[in-house]
Design a protein around this nucleic acid. Structure first.
Lengths: 335, 335
DNA sequence: CCCACTATTGCAAACGTTTGCATTAAGTTC
DNA sequence: GAACTTAATGCAAACGTTTGCAATAGTGGG
């Protein structure tokens, strides 16, 4: 430990000015003479000086921190498994940094019941980005009512009084399903959990197209958790009990699609000849699986930027509204 | 915004005690009568009171925050792509929370050159977990010399004066390679980047076993970036130029293995009949790919716990040392 | 030479906790 | 009942910034 931490007052003394001048100089306040400003900034650099963020936050009543709250359904501790969610977090991180904010990674376990109290009153963050609407909508509502600056990654069609950013899941569902039909699918299967906000919309899109095509009789819904394991198991079980009574799958996520693919391949069901598959998300694995996976791409980069942008707008008191991101079909070998 | 934020003094007034009593009561200080403590804690709960963390940190000179620094090689902004790294972060997050700390997610872009100044002097965190040794070892050294509480996820065999937690990559390399040979591989190929600390050890393990088996002549090394795309491209290129002059691949990571698998499958090279494949990491995809991927499992859960534990030990002044995590071979269809 | 004005700097209060020390009340001992 | 201990609480200072206001110096006009 070379030298003791110096505080602003020490730096000021070194520079031969008052603390207030030093403070203003570091913040590039034009009240201070240009020359003095530069001299002090230089001095700060050579001495590796950094402001005490705690003191600064206390005084300013602002933290320059954005919290990202992973809203898992399960109340138990749980690490995040879906690479897509992690990708979203990673892209939010980038956007946050680009705006000069820091990222506090949190979850329902830490934040407890009273999010407003924990983050805002507790001066841990200036605003919160909630990833995943989950089934904890009540908590989100409460935080929002308490006036917590808040943006949610979810389905923008949801009726809510907070701001939501998300893909056009309904359209995604339609596009995916239409694609299956275009490729000759007659007996489509939806693999996923329609109760969940985003997935519900995808299922609606699915149903919509099916209805239009007069295939309602032949279509099926297989409710499962959003994990590749669940998909693998349930497709296995279905093949054993019903045989191959479908010729196309719209999986609610890529991980689910990959799980299903594995089960099919193990039983020598040919993809895409016997069964067409379309996923959702476009995670890295979709491109590298074999056959590579046709999917609906969600623009996580844009999402991150938008989420942060809207949150910061709220912080300066602007009125912001939900918005929907365009999705796109990425055609690969599985269809 | 229902009510204005109340501060400790307000709560104290409500309870009819002094601020100091309120403070101690909330911290369960036995100086305060049991009964009073409970009464005040109850009051705090009903009023949704939360302490101002900024003030608390300023006073205590502690933040109760641990920073996780993703140490990417590239200096450019970049989101994290490898699901394995994200899994590590997610598991660290869990371990951090379990110890009652919060997690500041950061990267070399935010932290700049002077990590000690930024995190410690800046009172943003009490300690730092660096994920990935990368090629920025100089910065890590500097931070460590400056006395920054620090633990690194990397290869524990690295000569360094800071604490490293990581898998036994050398052993992993040996086990993986031995497994290939046991399965009949005669012309093994290492796919990866030996310059990188962790990967270098895996390669050493590879070479070691090859040497012992007298296969040095037949073995090959293909240097590539650690991405599935790079693997896919380079295997493709190699097949085109050299034909199939190998019968087993030890890929430095699962993502790399999967990229290679894709290229092979597209050219109808049978796995595991024509080429055996072993990966490293055991990401979720390894189990769900087809054929499923034999790999070396790294225990990220344990890693997270150990990293945090060792960091906290440093904070209370204990002497801690690097440690190596056991790895295990997970046999699947690709071998 | 004084006044008004601007440019630059400094003083001191405030942000909301925590904690060493002082204080009070109540019990205990001789 | 005086002296002493113990239990419970309060007072006030300190953590390191930022900023409204006051102060000073320098400039130019009348």
């Amino acid at each position: 430990m070379p030298q003791k931490k110096l505080k602003l007052a020490d730096l000021a003394k070194l520079a031969g000015v008052s603390t207030s001048t030093a403070s203003r100089a570091l913040n590039d306040n034009p009240l201070i003479k240009q020359e003095t400003r530069e001299r002090i900034q230089q001095l700060a650099k050579t001495h590796n000086f950094s402001l005490n963020a705690a003191a600064s936050r206390l005084r300013l009543q602002k933290t320059k921190v954005i919290a990202v709250l992973i809203n898992l359904d399960a109340e138990t501790e749980q690490s995040i498994d879906d690479p897509f969610l992690l990708k979203v977090v990673s892209d939010i991180n980038l956007a946050v940094n680009r705006q000069g904010y820091e990222l506090l990674l949190s979850n329902s376990y830490m934040a407890g019941e009273d999010w407003h109290g924990y983050f805002i009153d507790g001066r841990r963050a200036d605003g919160v980005i909630v990833v995943g609407q989950g089934k904890q909508q009540a908590r989100i509502d409460r935080a929002s009512e308490a006036g917590m600056p808040l943006v949610v990654w979810g389905d923008p069609k949801t009726e809510a009084d907070y701001v939501i950013v998300g893909s056009d899941n309904f359209l995604g569902g339609k596009v995916a399903t239409q694609h299956l039909l275009d490729k000759g699918c007659k007996k489509p299967l939806f693999l996923g959990e329609p109760e969940h906000a985003e997935l519900g919309e995808r299922y609606k899109g699915f149903s919509d197209v099916i209805e239009q095509a007069g295939l309602a009789e032949q279509a099926q819904l297989l409710k499962i958790d959003i994990t590749s394991q669940a998909a693998y198991d349930s497709i296995n079980r279905k093949l054993r009990s019903d045989g191959l009574d479908f010729d196309g799958i719209f999986a609610c996520s890529d991980m689910v699609a990959l799980g299903a693919m594995k089960a099919l391949k193990e039983r020598y069901v040919s993809i895409p000849n016997d069964v067409l598959i379309v996923g959702f998300d476009d995670i890295a694995m979709a491109d590298v699986s074999f056959p590579s996976l046709t999917t609906i791409k969600q623009d996580t980069k844009k999402a991150g930027e938008l989420l942060v942008e809207k949150l910061l707008a709220q912080l300066v008191g602007e009125e912001v509204s939900s918005s929907q991101l365009a999705i796109s079909l990425v055609e690969r070998q599985s269809s």
